[in-house]
Simulated assay, not measured.
Amino acid sequence: MNIQDVLVFTTAVSAGSLSEAARRLGMPSMTATRRLAALEATVGVRLMHRTTRSLSLTAEGETFLPYAQALVENTEEALAQFNSGTQKASGLLRVSVPVAFGIQFVAPLVPQLLEAHPSLRISLDLSDALPDLVSSGMDLAIRIARLKDSNLIARKLADNPRVLVASPDYLRKYGTPRTLEELQQHNCLPIANIQQWNFVADGHERHMRLNPRFSATSIEGCHAVSIAGGGIALLANWNVEKDLQSGRLVEVKLEDVAPQTIAIWAVYPTRKLLPAKVSVFISALQEVLDKSTSGNG
């Protein structure tokens, strides 16, 4: 049984179509079709009902799927054991990162990763929403949040301290809040669908309910509006460092609470051993974040 044929089958199931599976695996659609046909010939049964745009598993396909997935995972694990010394990444790495973070930290990494690993290809999805890693085919997502429990594996890369900021013009016009109660009377600029900001005081969490007149789907929108004088934003230190130095933004320090520190996470589907392309990317990003943290310390 050819493992590449099995890989086409498992990828087609998660992708929802053979054409999408071919794209994820970096092969022509015709090749994927032939590999699936070869697998069906080997096992002696039809595994999928398929059209040009969609597919569905046969009863035999449903039975075969868990064995196929285990076969692919075990093969990847075995290869990784033999290749762990070289750590040469190959294939297509699909990674989702928040927009502002991706531009500042991830995009500058891409050239050196591609140069160090000639067989590696990278597809970067810039989005502040956490995708369904399984259905979207993403190998990895970097997220800055308080993660909810899930079936995904999450590895903490770094802390992500945050500050309240506003433009000097806004503070001159509306005043500077000194307490959490006063902050609630100001124009706050949250990410869309965020219902509260979290703070800490004497080791205890405190929350401020939000009723904003403005919100944005990306933190970059909140950042831009705060610079323009639209209100107070809660942003990461790395995101506003240059603005604070230049005076475009001013830190708003409250007397009774401080913004809660969240973390930067690498999130990936559950599996026993990470492919080299994922572990190489995480290691490179970890190194950048470590340098950034020590530089700010």
Rank of each mutant, 00 (worst) to 15 (best):
L65S: 06
A38L: 11
G203T: 06
N239V: 04
S226T: 09
A80Q: 11
M27S: 08
S119R: 15
L65P: 03
V45P: 00
P28V: 01
S84W: 10
L180D: 12
L92Q: 10
M48N: 01
P131Q: 10
R24F: 09
K148H: 13
G61F: 02
F9T: 05
N160C: 14
T63C: 07
T261S: 10
S90V: 01
H223K: 12
A59P: 00
P275E: 14
F9N: 05
K272Q: 13
R172F: 02
L285A: 02
N160A: 15
S215G: 02
D159K: 12
A129P: 08
Q195V: 10
Q69W: 05
V163K: 02
R172N: 15
P118V: 11
G175V: 11
R271T: 08
P275N: 14
H186E: 05
P190S: 10
E60P: 01
L210D: 07
P177L: 08
G44L: 10
Q260H: 11
N2E: 15
A68K: 06
M27T: 07
I282R: 00
L114I: 03
L140V: 08
W197R: 06
N187M: 13
L47A: 05
K253H: 10
E205K: 07
L244Q: 07
L55E: 01
Q185S: 15
H117W: 04
A236C: 13
S246F: 06
S127K: 06
R24S: 05
T58S: 13
A258Q: 12
V278T: 13
L65I: 07
A89N: 02
V95H: 00
T86A: 14
I232W: 01
R53Y: 00
G91H: 09
S17I: 04
A100W: 01
T176P: 03
G26F: 11
T217F: 11
L133S: 03
F101E: 02
G102L: 04
L113R: 01
K277W: 01
N83G: 06
L126K: 08
R178Y: 09
V72G: 05
L171T: 10
V163L: 13
A80R: 13
S167G: 12
N151T: 11
R155C: 01
L65H: 04
N198T: 15
I219G: 11
L171V: 10
I144D: 01
A129C: 11
